[in-house]
């Protein structure tokens, strides 16, 4: 990546850079992480930046927060190629990929109107992660496409 592209999103001092997010998914990444800026977090979001690996990619930088592997693995559902960079004093000290978790809880809402989880019950949504989609642990509905639209916001 050239210096020119780097400049589109400012560097951070301490925190997490989520790179190689599929183009257009940055806001969904923030929604999944439950970050909306309302708590004063310093955020930079670059969208549809030219990329070598993806035609267009998004970048999300979160200042002052080191995201754990568990927190970022759920991103694999919408951004399977994402890379996570932990930054301290402007240096990348850790770099890793997102891995598909076995289960995601309290992130997605079930699209099946006949599902008990859509009924105002005191229940946390839970989906098993399949090779090519997710499956509601309650009603068994499998979703393969537009998983981003199920993000519980």
């Amino acid at each position: 990546m050239s210096e020119d592209h780097q400049l589109r999103v400012s560097k951070i001092r301490n925190g997490t850079v989520i790179d190689h997010v599929n183009g257009g998914q940055a806001l969904n990444v923030l929604a999944i992480l439950g970050i909306d800026g309302s708590e004063g977090e310093e955020l930079s979001v670059g969208m549809n930046v030219p990329s070598d690996r993806l035609a267009r990619k998004d970048i999300v930088k979160v200042e002052g927060r080191e995201l754990s592997q568990d927190e970022v693995d759920v991103l694999s559902l919408i951004a399977p190629d994402a890379t996570i960079n932990i930054v301290r004093e402007y240096e990348v000290v850790e770099k890793h990929r997102v891995e598909r978790p076995d289960v995601v809880e309290a992130v997605l809402s079930c699209p099946n109107p006949g599902c008990i989880t859509t009924e105002g019950e005191p229940v946390t949504s839970r989906f098993e992660v399949l090779e090519d989609g997710v499956r509601c642990s309650y009603c068994g509905t499998i979703v393969r496409e537009s998983i981003a639209s199920m993000i519980d916001t």
């Binding site: 099946n112 008990i116 229940v123 009603c139």
Partner: peptide, 13 residues
Amino acid sequence: RHPKQGSATMASE
């Protein structure tokens, strides 16, 4: 017996 899918799973919890 309940009309919603997954109701028994949830109730059992």
